[in-house]
């Protein structure tokens, strides 16, 4: 069986590499091609003639409207691996704020805290909705309404309101993350906890199983695949929430702060490299959740 599985897996893997590379190459080509028209009005290009020369200059401008991919990657390299990661202060060794990893960590910590809070809240709400008709009727509209309010509108309110009671930094950002990410978890878990079929539920009934036993032995394990699907969505929007939470306060640290300061000073390359880092971070987080999903579902006997 394993031989059959591997012989099936190998050609599929080989088959997907080429299309991915082709698409990536096409996007890169379009990007490089777009650099000249996007940066056409900049003074650096005013006196340059000849198409080839104009392109060469357009890919090496210090503050371009659209930086070339290699400029972003270079900036990303310089601000991470090219900069000292730690710095010695009076308090001891800390992460160096000149290194992008420092900012990523500031955002990541808010992301993870918000993700944990939001997921827990979503699960609790789902359990309430599944077990109580009253809660289902009274809570569900609020859950839906909460997501119709643009996060950009509510983020400053949360930051200011919490700031006035002395809460600043990590927690307000985490709350904004949680506010965003509880929703997919709640919706997914309601579906998951209701997924056992009549027969599986009747079986528990013939054993005179309690509500708690039915929950832990049937509803919860049945909901686990739904939980992971939701968590994958939740972790990425958690990151978005943390970045958005850094924007309204003019925070000094975090990927959101880098985006903001980059836009103040026209440092487009810095903005893009922070964006790229955020994207890489999001991908890493999704991979981590997916890995946890695989291990969990494997232990739960899912078909490979």
């Amino acid at each position: 069986m394993s031989a059959a599985a591997s012989s099936r897996a190998v050609p599929r893997k080989a088959g997907s590499t080429v299309p991915v590379l082709v698409i990536t190459a096409m996007i890169m080509a379009a990007w490089y091609a777009a650099c000249l028209p996007m940066n056409n009005d900049l003074p650096q290009l005013a006196r340059v003639t000849g198409l080839a020369e104009r392109y060469q200059v357009s890919w090496a401008i210090e503050r371009p409207v659209l930086p070339a991919p290699h400029q972003i990657v270079t900036e990303l390299y310089n601000s991470t691996i090219g900069t000292r990661l730690f710095r010695e202060t009076a308090d001891g060794v800390v992460l160096n704020p000149r290194n992008l990893v420092f900012h990523a960590w500031v955002t990541l910590s808010a992301t993870l805290l918000g993700f944990a809070m939001g997921s827990l809240l979503g699960i609790v709400i789902a359990i309430g909705i599944v077990h109580s008709r009253t809660l289902s009727k009274s809570l569900m509209p609020w859950v839906i309404i909460s997501q119709t309010i643009p996060i950009l509108a509510i983020a400053p309110i949360v930051i200011v309101a919490l700031g006035s009671i002395g809460l600043t930094g990590l927690v307000p950002k985490a709350i904004i993350s949680a506010y965003l990410c509880f929703f997919p978890v709640a919706i997914g878990m309601v579906k998951g906890l209701l997924s056992p079929d009549t027969m599986q539920l009747d079986l528990m009934r013939t054993y005179n199983g309690s509500v708690a036993q039915t929950f832990w032995k049937l509803r919860w394990p049945a909901a686990v695949p739904f939980l992971f699907a939701s968590l994958k969505v939740a972790i990425t929007i958690s990151l978005v929430g943390a970045i958005v939470g850094e924007l309204p306060t003019g925070a000094q640290a975090g990927l959101g702060a880098r985006l903001l300061s980059g836009s103040y000073f026209g440092q487009t390359i810095q903005i893009w490299s922070a964006l790229l880092f955020a994207a890489l971070l999001a991908a890493l987080l999704v991979v981590a959740v997916t890995l946890a999903e695989r291990l969990t579902l494997k232990a739960m006997g899912s078909r490979p």
């Binding site: 009747d202 079986l203 013939t206 394990p221 006997g301 899912s302």
Partner: peptide
């Protein structure tokens, strides 16, 4: 003891 039309085993 009740045996259903389908095995109704819990897959996990």
């Amino acid at each position: 003891g009740y045996v259903f039309q389908a095995p109704a085993l819990y897959p996990w």
